[in-house]
């Protein structure tokens, strides 16, 4: 019976009024051996991602790739158009008049990098994602206002609803609640 309820949960979430208390709670939960958890905050909290054991995102590499593709694409397009496909003599300039290809190549670099960044971000965060179990947490609408939430998820190998609840209740939480999937 207990097992069934436990598997039916997304996790157990605690609500905090302050980011310092949240950070202390994260530390405590990590020390207790929980690894699969996430915190939800109205503003970015510095050190939170690291405290949760998160790694640095690879997003800058995606941006770099987008920028490189953009530059090469822009440059390639201009060289191909101006020197191969549609060569036109303008004021006696050489077909490969590369200095005049810089502005467009530069703009293509920025465009490629920016598109890669936003697409990369959305893909990493799985946006758009209209439904997520965490929204079932009672009072979660305040996570975008003035409350901080910590949720230990049921996929954690050590997860046990009662134990987690007990742990979180001892961290200065305003409320602790089970989260339906």
């Amino acid at each position: 019976m207990d097992d069934k309820i436990q598997n039916d949960l997304y996790g157990v979430a605690a609500e905090y009024a302050d980011d310092a208390v949240l950070l202390a709670a994260v530390k405590k939960a990590r020390e207790a051996g929980y690894t699969v958890m996430d915190a939800y905050t109205p503003v970015p909290v510095h050190g939170l991602h690291e405290a949760l054991g998160g790694k640095r995102t690879k997003l800058p590499l995606i941006t770099l790739a987008g920028g490189v593709i953009g530059t090469l694409g822009g440059l390639g397009l201009q060289v191909w158009v101006s020197a191969i496909e549609y060569p036109m003599n303008v004021g006696g300039r050489p077909w490969l008049s590369w200095p005049s290809f810089f502005p467009v190549a530069f703009e293509c670099m920025i465009l490629g990098a920016a598109l890669a960044t936003i697409i990369g971000l959305f893909a990493m965060c799985k946006f758009p994602l209209p439904y997520h179990s965490i929204f079932n947490t009672p009072g979660f609408e305040r996570a975008s206002n003035d409350r901080y939430f910590l949720c230990v998820e049921s996929t954690d190998p050590k997860f046990d609803a009662k134990a987690v609840r007990h742990l979180l209740e001892g961290t200065g939480a305003e409320a602790v609640s089970e989260v339906e999937p």
């Binding site: 996430d38 915190a39 939800y40 905050t41 109205p42 970015p44 909290v45 939170l48 991602h49 949760l52 998160g54 995102t57 997003l59 800058p60 941006t63 990098a113 920016a114 960044t117 936003i118 990369g120 971000l121 959305f122 990493m124 965060c125 799985k126 946006f127 758009p128 994602l129 209209p130 439904y131 997520h132 965490i134 929204f135 996570a143 975008s144």
Partner: peptide
């Protein structure tokens, strides 16, 4: 887009904003 203020979101978001 389903933003839920998760620490992962914020982390990537801040990096993306800086890049932008």
């Amino acid at each position: 887009m389903g933003w839920r203020g998760s620490s992962l979101h914020w982390h990537r978001y801040e990096v993306a904003y800086m890049l932008f």
